[in-house]
């Protein structure tokens, strides 16, 4: 085996590994809980994360949505009235899971994202 082919092989292996590490990091999914259990202001709403298909969040429910990567995301809320608003938030770095409380989502302000422990169920 000459030096050149060795270098080529090592480069390929490194590229392969780098690609794997990147895919693992960038694609890692984290649970984001939408907490709609506060019944003082009951609303049913649809939540769209990063332009994916909408997820229905019932009043009184604690809904889990998976988000891809600990980075900036957009969240848009669609209320039954048809009103829709869109916010961006950053998934807290280092957190296993995070939660957003619906009553704290107001148009115009940044959403409050709290790191929480992931639920041990499904």
């Amino acid at each position: 085996m000459n030096l050149r082919s060795l270098v080529v092989k090592i480069t390929l292996a490194v590229v392969y590994l780098v690609l794997a590490v990147w895919a693992y990091g960038a694609g890692k999914g984290y649970p984001l809980y939408i907490d709609n259990t506060d019944l003082s202001k009951p609303t049913m709403l649809s939540v769209v994360i990063d332009g994916k298909s909408p997820v229905r969040v019932r009043e009184g429910a604690y809904t889990e949505i998976m988000v891809k990567g600990a980075r900036k995301h957009t969240i848009s809320l669609v209320l039954p009235s048809g009103a829709e608003y869109r916010e961006t938030f950053r998934f807290p770095a280092g957190a296993q899971a995070a939660e957003i409380r619906v009553p704290e989502l107001a148009p115009g302000s940044d959403p409050v994202v709290r790191p929480v422990l992931p639920r041990q169920d499904r």
């Binding site: 794997a20 990147w22 895919a23 693992y24 694609g27 890692k28 999914g29 998976m66 891809k68």
Partner: peptide, 19 residues
């Protein structure tokens, strides 16, 4: 492997292919 490690979307498919 990709699903078990919760790697989503295109990155998940790339990882699955790499494995």
């Amino acid at each position: 492997f990709a699903v078990d490690h919760n790697i989503m979307g295109t990155e998940g498919l790339i990882l699955a292919t790499l494995v």
